[in-house]
Amino acid sequence: MVDMKKIKSLDLSRMDFVTDQTVKWCPGCGDYSILKQTQRVLPELGVPKENFLFISGIGCSSRFPYYMNTYGFHTIHGRAAAIASGAKLANPDLSVWVVTGDGDALSIGGNHTIHLMRRNLDINILLFNNRIYGLTKGQYSPTSELGKVTKSTPMGSLDRPFNPTSLALGSQATFVARTIDRNPKHIQSILKSAYHHKGTSFVEIYQNCVIFNDGAFENLTNKKILSNNVVQLEHGQPMIFGKNRNLGIHLDGNTPSIIDLDKDDNVSIDDILIHDEKDIVIASMLSSFTYNDNFPTPVGIIYAVDEPIYEDLSQKQIDTAIEKQGKGDIQALLDSGNIWEVK
């Protein structure tokens, strides 16, 4: 395997990651943007092309590997996280990316998603959340809002939606971030951070389905209104948002509120909460703003901490066992136990 630390420039460009396959997403689909940003980011990571592995499950987003000129595996519904775990464990030198959707990762594959995060293998999960089932033509998904009227729920859905970032935090993910398909620069920056984070990186990407759930993120992407609805997180910086960067998140005890620097003379920028991506309490609070009309939707890195990664621990056990017992000798093992000889 190539030692990645030694590689400075591999002279790769976006086009090196484009395949000859026709992209078959619907015109206007948010997936195009995510694909393009990924193809832009990969050449900048210093990883040889052959060391990238993209693994997906089933759904619109899961066609992604076919369009990436890397090693790829389009698998079965919900199981990408499990297949990726085996692949990463088998060869920790690979840069492994799971591409999945809200149905694939949170419904049929929910179990694998949470277990991947708690194990903390160094895998990047890109969860395209369009809050609907696209490939099966428009049923509600586990992130659809309560009461969603779809073909399978003509009188409205009855189940409350998952909040993916809270689920990730609850699963002890060590990197939790959110970005939006309509913000290419932001996607690129989050993808890079996800790559550089050692451990499972959970990236929720809000992605518009033009056919079955168009406008689901309108208030977060419409340039006229988004500034009041989105707070872009930066580690060590105050949580400021608003059209004139006049609004901020303030914490009074355990209770968050929004303060307006323009309207309230008694508050200053010092009253605005500083984002600390290593603070689980802040991360949990920020995540709770999801689907909450009283607060802006946070995008950026919500939480990022370093914890030991599974594949390293696995290798350490192997090293320790070899150190203590010596490298396994299969013939000696066969010949062990209570042996007797027939002459």
């Binding site: 499990a82 085996g86 464990l89 694998h112 277990h115 192997i318 070899i322 203590k324």
Partner: peptide, 23 residues
């Protein structure tokens, strides 16, 4: 482990075989 064997006790039967397919 001293034979370099990697065993993965997965979260369920499906993940067990899936991880093996990945490997």
């Amino acid at each position: 482990r001293n034979f370099g064997v990697k065993t993965f006790q997965a979260e369920d039967e499906i993940a067990g075989v899936s991880a093996a397919i990945g490997a």
